[in-house]
Amino acid sequence: QSYDYDEGSETWPFFVLAVLCVVLVPLTLMQAYEIIAAKDEDSSSQSSPLEKLSEKYTGDQVKRFRAKFAPKKSKLLARRNLVIIAGWCMVAFLINKIGSNGAIKDAATLLFDPYALLDISASSTDREIRSAYRKLSVKFHPDKLSKDLSADERTVLEEQYVMITKAYKALTDEITRENYLRYGHPDGPQATSHGIALPKFLVDSSASTLMVLGYIALLGFILPFFVSRWWSKTQSFTKKGIHARSASYFADRLFNFKPSQVVTTGLILNWLSHAAEFKLLYPDLTQETFESLLYDHINRRHSGELETAKLRIVAKTHALLFGLLDIATTFRNLEISTVAIDTFKSIVQATPLTSHSQILQLPNVDAKRFEEGSVDDIRTLGKLFTFEDEKIGKILGIEDETKLRETLSVAANIPHLKLLRAEFTVPGESVVTPLSTPHISVKVLVRSAKHKFFTPNKIPDELYKEEQDFDSLRDPFASLSNQPALPRTFAPHFPAKRSGCWCALVVLQKDGKVIQTPMLVDRLSFANLNKDFDKRTVKDLEKEFNPEEWEIGTIKIPFSQPAPDQKGDYYFRVIVKSTEYFGADLDFTLPMMVRE
Amino acid sequence: LQYNPNSKLLGLPHSSEDVTMNISQINKLTQDLVAETNANFTPQPHAESTAMIKKMFENGLKQTQQQKLADALKSINLAIEMAQRKRTTWEAFAVQLQELQFMLKNRVDLCLVQGRFMDALQDLDFLQNTGLNSSDVFIRKTDALIKLKQYEQARAECERGLSLDPTNVKLKALLIENTRRLAEYNG
C-alpha cells in the first residue's frame, strides 16, 4: 500500500520531458516547414507592373482598412513561436536538472551493461569478448595489483574486477546470460522500486485537495469548453469556408430556383446579402442594408459611416462566392455559375456588369465622357488598342498624360487567354479509349489586348510537346506546378490584396448542364505580357513573330467521370472564366472522340 | 393561413415568395374550378377555346401571306394572349405546351423579319427552356444574338447547335460569320 514518492525528483523530470517532447517536436517541425513554405511561396509567385499600379490607385480608405485587418505579418513573434521557445528552454532546464541530479546518476550506474564494462561493441564475437576479458583481467586481477595502492583504491579495483568477471560470465556462461537477458542483471532480478512520479507534497498533504480541484477543473470545465468551442466552430463552417447557414440558404435558393427567374448579378448580390457571415459581423444591420452596401461598392459610392462595414462584407464575399459557385455547380446550374463569376468580377473591379465593363474597369476612365463619346461603340480592350494613344485618351476622357500612360499600362497588362490547342487526353494513350480516365489538356497563350493577333498554327508543334516521362504519366497534373503562381490583381477598390484565379467549368453540350465542380487555375505564366508586340506597330507577322519567345501556358482540367463505354463523339463545352477581370475568359466546345 | 369565404381565396400574410406563389396557384385553380359550368369536365382541351385560338392564329398566318407583317404579329399575339387566358389549369399540359410552342415559333420568325431581335431572342430562350432544342432554334438564336452584338453568346449558342447537329450547313456558315464579327469586335 505504501507507495514511495519520488522525493529525489528522480523520475518526474523524465515524465515531464517526455510530455514536452511529444508536444514540442511536431510543433517545431510544423512551424519550420511553414516558414520555409512561406519563403518558397514568395519566391515562386511572379511580380507584375499591375501590382505597383494597384498600390498607387488604392484609396487611403482601403489602405487604412488593409492596415487594420491585414493578417499579422510577424510570424516569428506569433504566439506559437513563443510557446516553442519556452518549451525548449524547459527541456534544456530539465535535461541539466537530470544531469546534475546525483540520485539519478547512481541509479544509472545500477544499470548493468557488460559490453560497456568490457568496452567492446555490442556486436563483437565470442573470440573478441574472450580476448578483451583476458586483457582486462590481467590488468585488474587482485594479485597483479601493485603494492603501493591504498586500501580503498584496492577495493574499487577489486570491485571493478568482479564486475568484469560478471560481465564476461553474462556474455558467455549460459545461466548468468539467461539471468542477464531476463532481468538485465547477471545476479537475477534486482530490487526494483515502484513509485509515483510525483513529489510527495502534491499527493499527500494539503496540496492534494488542490490537485483534485485541478483535475475537476480540467476535466469538468476546461476540456468541455475547448471541445464545445471547437465542435461549434467545425459545425458552423463548411469545408469551403462559408457558414453552414449561408450554404443552406444558397442550396435552398438553388433547389427552389424557377426558370421564370432571371439570373442577373443583382439576384446573386441579393443572395449574398442573406449570408450569415454578415449577420454575425454586424447583427444590428439588416439584409437590405447589406445589399445596398454591396451595390455601393460596385457603383463606387461612399457609404458614409458604414464604409468600414462595407469593406468588411465585401472582403467576405470572396469565400461566399466560391461557396455559391461550388453549390451551383453541384446543382449543375450553368447560368447561375457563370453569373456568380461575373458578380465576382464586378465586385473585384467595383464595376457593374454592362457591355462596356471591359473598358470601365480601367482606372481614370470618365464613364460619362466615354458613354457619350464612343462613336463606334468600343466594348473591348482589343478594339480600344486599335486607336492611337491620344485618341484613346479622348475616348476615355483622360487629359493628364501620366494618367493616360498608367491606364494604358493597366489595359496592356490585363491577361487575356487565347486558345491554342485543347483535347481530351488519356496519359499514355493516343486516343480516348472507352471507360478510360481522360483529362482535358488546354494550351493557352496569355496575351495582352494590345498584342498583334496571330493564328495558333503559327506555333510549331514541338512547342506543344510535354515530357512523356513516367511521373508525368502517373500524375499529369504535377507539371502544372512548374508554372509560376498568378501575380497580384489590379483591384484598387477591393479591400484586400488578391491574385485571383480562373474557374474552369465543364458543361455537357447535350443538356447544357455543368458536370463537375470548378477547377481553379491559379498558376500561369504572365511573361508574354511584358512584350510590346503592339498591333499598331507590328506590320508583317512573318518577320517579327518568333514563336520561341512566346510562353505557352497549360491548363489541365481533371474529368470527374470515366469516359463513356460506347465509341463515338461526345461534345463538351469548357468555360475558363477569370474571377478578376472582364474579358479575360475562354469559352470553347471540345469533342471527346471515344475510340477503341 | 386565412380563407376569405366570399372571395373564396386563401391568404398568408408575410410569406416567402415561394409560398406566395404556391398559394396563388391554388387560388387560380379554385377560381377556375368555381367558374367551370360543365360538371363533368375532363383534361381534354375545351373545343371552343381551341377553335377561337385557331381562328385567331390562322388569321395571323393569312396576314403573313399578304405580307401585312405588323398585323400578323398583332393577331398572333392576340392568339397567344387568348390561349394564356382562356385555357384552364387542368387542360392537358402537353397540348397547351405544343400549342404555345407552335405559335411562338411563328412569332419568332415574324419578329426576326421585322427586326425585333430582343423579342425573338426571349421567345427562343423560352422555347429552349421548354425543351425545344432543334437546329432551327439554334440558327435563329445565333442570328438574333449576332444582330444584338452579343458575339460571345452567339458563338456559344452556335457551337452548341453544332454539337447537337454537327453537319448543319447554316450553323457552320453562321459560325464563320460570327467569328469574323468577333475578330472585328475584339479589334
Binding site: 421564370s260 432571371v262 457591355s355 | 431572342l121
Partner: peptide, 22 residues
C-alpha cells in the same frame, strides 16, 4: 400549366433586364 404561364410572363421581364444589361 401555371408554371408554364409564369415562364411565359417572364419573357417580358427578361427583355427589360437584358436590354438594360446590353
Amino acid at each position: 400549366n401555371q408554371a408554364l404561364k409564369r415562364r411565359y410572363q417572364a419573357i417580358l421581364l427578361r427583355k427589360d433586364v437584358f436590354a438594360v444589361q446590353w
